[in-house]
């Protein structure tokens, strides 16, 4: 079985990329905090799942991709397009169900997509976008355009049949796809260790004769980036798919405002993860390495906060869709409803 042994070899990451990692993690953080407060105020319709605590995993993976590479994800859907470089106002407008939303108000929180940055859509049905990413890799392979596809899926989705079919398909066809498991150790309230036959999802790679690696410190954005980069480079060289599993933790409940009947997570466990916050860790590293000064990083944070605030302003000021828009965009060549709209 091939191994991803280069994973822990240090990677060269230039100053701008290191700063961009912090910027994007901060974007996810500020966006999610804003969203969480909107949910609290009852101003966001629908279910909302945040990536608070998982920023390093999301951003490290996305930044190992080129802007033209493809990506799919899941219900925890905001971080992925943000990490991939999507512009924030249409994302925020989508969450508010506005016609200026990136999906014109048809997708909402669990189903963001921004094709302009290769984000082919997030799936509310757990695991369901994994075959789609595999297919994006198939087109890249057949068209020979040098692109790769990455699919984010959770530890819960690791037990979906479609993942296993996709792994096998990608392996036999040597497709340029990275199966990226965001192992935050719980699927809703179910601990991964109680429902996984393996300690680490990446172990399953051996069943498909593909490389599998687990980044144990998924709060370290550089470690994530390095591991995913190896898999991306390998895919781009035509050597096929990999599983990259990132151990991480979500700070919030499964979805915002969800009330649980019983405690399924230990408060101390949560505290221990919060103590190693990915943004704090990366900031400290940048300062220690002299990549940037306190003042520069403070400026970066406040710029991002302004960006998120103006995204929210844009979203709030945007109009709601006209009722007739419900009928748009089902088909590329539309079929009129017989007898008119109901």
């Amino acid at each position: 079985m091939p191994e991803l042994t280069e994973v822990y070899a240090p990677v060269e990451v230039d100053r701008e990329t290191q700063l961009e990692m912090l910027r994007r993690m901060q974007r996810v953080r500020s966006f999610e905090l804003t969203v969480a407060s909107l949910v609290k105020k009852g101003e966001l319709p629908g279910a909302v799942h945040t990536s608070l605590g998982q920023e390093a995993e999301v951003v490290g993976a996305c930044m190992a991709l080129a802007p033209t590479d493809y990506m799919t994800g899941n219900h925890r859907s905001h971080g992925h397009p943000i990490g991939k470089g999507a512009s924030l106002p249409p994302l925020m407008a989508e969450l508010l169900g506005k016609s200026t939303g990136v999906c014109r108000g048809k997708g909402g929180s669990m189903h963001l997509a921004d094709f302009s940055v290769g984000s082919l859509g997030e799936s509310g049905v757990v695991g369901s976008a994994i075959p789609v990413a595999t297919g994006a890799a198939l087109s890249a392979h057949v068209l020979g355009n040098g692109r790769v596809a990455l699919c984010f899926f959770g530890d819960g989705a690791a037990n979906q049949g479609c993942l296993h079919e996709s792994l096998n398909l990608a392996a036999i066809w040597k497709l340029p796809v990275i199966f990226l498991c965001e192992n935050n150790q719980y699927a809703s309230t179910t601990p991964a260790r109680t429902v996984l036959s393996v300690d680490r999802v990446a172990q399953r790679a051996s069943g498909y004769s593909i490389p599998g690696v687990t980044v144990e410190d998924g709060q370290d954005v550089l470690a994530v980036y390095a591991a995913v980069k190896v898999a991306v480079d390998r895919a781009r060289r035509g050597e096929g798919p990999s599983i990259v599993e990132i151990m991480t933790y979500r700070y919030s409940e499964h979805s915002e405002g969800l009330l649980h009947a019983g405690a399924y997570r230990d408060a101390a466990e949560r505290e221990s993860w919060i103590a190693r916050d990915p943004l704090v860790l990366h900031r400290a590293r940048l300062l220690t390495a002299g990549v940037a000064t306190e003042a520069e990083l403070d400026q970066l944070v406040s710029d991002v906060e302004d960006e998120v605030a103006s995204a929210l302003e844009f979203a709030v000021a945007s109009p709601l869709p006209e009722p007739a828009e419900a009928y748009a965009d089902l088909f590329t060549t539309p079929i009129p409803q017989f007898g008119g709209m109901v």
Binding site: L120, P131, A133, G135, A137, L138, S139, A140, C162, S166
Partner: peptide, 12 residues
């Protein structure tokens, strides 16, 4: 797997 992969390929 392949029904979904065909969809992803069609989207790209």
């Amino acid at each position: 797997g392949f029904v979904g992969a065909a969809a992803g390929a069609a989207m790209t």
